[in-house]
Design a protein around this nucleic acid. Sequence first.
DNA 1: TTGTAGGCGTTATCAG
DNA 2: CTGATAACGCCTACAA
Lengths: 345, 345
Amino acid sequence: MDERGKPSEVRISDLASELGLTKGTVSRALNGYEDISKKTRKRVTEVARILGYVPTTQARRLAMGLTETIGLVLPPVPSQPVNTFVSEFIDSISTALNIHGYDLLVHSVNSEKSEVDQYQRLVHSRKVDGFIILRTLEADTRVDYLLKEGFPFVTHGRTARMAEHDWFDIDGEKAFRDATSHLVKLGHQRIGFVGGGNEFFSAQLRLKGYRNMMEETYDNKISGLEQPGDLTGLGGETAARNLLKQNPCPTAILCANDATALGVIKAARELGFRIPQQLSVIGYDGIALGGYLDPPLTTLTFSIEASGREIVAMLLRRLKEPGLPIISKLASATLKLRGSEGPPT
Amino acid sequence: MDERGKPSEVRISDLASELGLTKGTVSRALNGYEDISKKTRKRVTEVARILGYVPTTQARRLAMGLTETIGLVLPPVPSQPVNTFVSEFIDSISTALNIHGYDLLVHSVNSEKSEVDQYQRLVHSRKVDGFIILRTLEADTRVDYLLKEGFPFVTHGRTARMAEHDWFDIDGEKAFRDATSHLVKLGHQRIGFVGGGNEFFSAQLRLKGYRNMMEETYDNKISGLEQPGDLTGLGGETAARNLLKQNPCPTAILCANDATALGVIKAARELGFRIPQQLSVIGYDGIALGGYLDPPLTTLTFSIEASGREIVAMLLRRLKEPGLPIISKLASATLKLRGSEGPPT
DNA sequence: TTGTAGGCGTTATCAG
DNA sequence: CTGATAACGCCTACAA
């Protein structure tokens, strides 16, 4: 790297002396205060442009007492491998934040410390103004902590305390009613379900949607069709094996997410099932790679970009006006038919 | 959110007056300066712990003139969809950075502005101390810009100016020699190759490795076996169609990355090829979902976590001692046999 | 409309 | 070993 004096070491004081004004005046001119003559403002902005002046973030933030930064703590790894959701989501919120002049700080949970510790640390060191929380649990300690501190955040997903905080969620219950209904209409009767860990609120709701529709449709309940899962491919494999060794066995399986569906398909194939002829499979999330499977995975989906935008909007609103009432948004997922389901044979 | 006075509004001045010391002394005690009596240090740390004092990042950084933050600008979307690489990588570098007290700032390229603009903005506003650059081009404007500014960064991948900056890369040339050799040993003669856009340096090297091995093995070159690609599933589909409509057509296809391989497999299937019986396919990257395909995708891979750690170490070294000589690291990829290749029939 | 002065919360440089 | 005092670079009252 070279040793020449770096360019753009232009401070507001340089600008001021260059203009024959004081720092205060320059600052106000640049920040659009009304009590500045039109002419002065023009001069200031002009010279600022020429000199390439850009305010130093650190100083600005210290003076204003805010960080203009939002924190995202990545959920611990196990769930990630087959999941592009997180990276797509990061992209979407960072885009949305950048537009409003905010930055995204991504933290990870390194082994030793607990997840809540990460939040504590970020709060206490005042590195962020607010959080976006992913993959909520019914009893979520992160939510408990932030609520206790009165620190702003928005969750992607509901929690037991959803009345107390802003949240965005996709209506998984309705989604799974729809998907179940779709399979019923195709003629399926033995429809299996692979869940996603009861601690996840959303997983419970998906199960509920499935179960309700099943009960509404078939009076005599068939047992053994519900299997627990863990939102990973591996969990899907295990669950599928349990379902498919039954006799008679399901002709269709609904999965709590796409990663699970991949596992289900893998296991089903290994057991000799052809998809969708002998087994219909439907996932949830709409990750892009689903389209590259054979057959492409039918799934329930909602635009990740839109949800990111939505969540960022909610959070910025909260930061601007902390006193506003709690808000929430429930979006409807779309059933994306791609070929991994069909009539039973 | 509640209105009670937030806890932990403990400033260093509070600590100081509580202890009957001055801010300066407290600061030095906390930061491990040697010229502090053992007893005082103990008192200070003790009280700091009790009061829950945590230095305010903004102020600290302003005073020290650094941000302790590293920037990562997400490559524009098109390549992402089928690619979990980015999220896995973010996880790995953020973990590595956090361990050393650094933060990761993720920026995205919102449409209107160019990619380099994002870097400029981050540099000028002094939001980061350095960058990690992903997916390098042979002639990379981001590299050009940062080199010009003398701003610290490490690339994941080589560039035309690799002698001038620190970089980490995986030896794609060797990897593709190995993969080609593996296919040759299995008995393949017509081995196709789907590239990844000539602008990417690494893609060129992969091609080179493939080509060299082919030339070494078969004197009489077979033409038409190399197809351009773009590192996406879609590109893979198109390329595969071009390759497979030939007569005789390839019995194996090597792909510049896993996303491409997914596309190739998809297209091949649609054309009626069975894998690996009628067509062997090998990818590159080792994304986890490759293991969930049918058959699981054979691929070339290197631990993303390890590469993240490596890159972070290089960058922190550079930040600590800007004058040190340029360093680089070339890692060897491993051929991960999973079943999407076999002997030709 | 503009200048002055003080503060944001730390770290760093001197004396003493 | 510790206490003043001055940065760091910006914002914002308040005064002129």
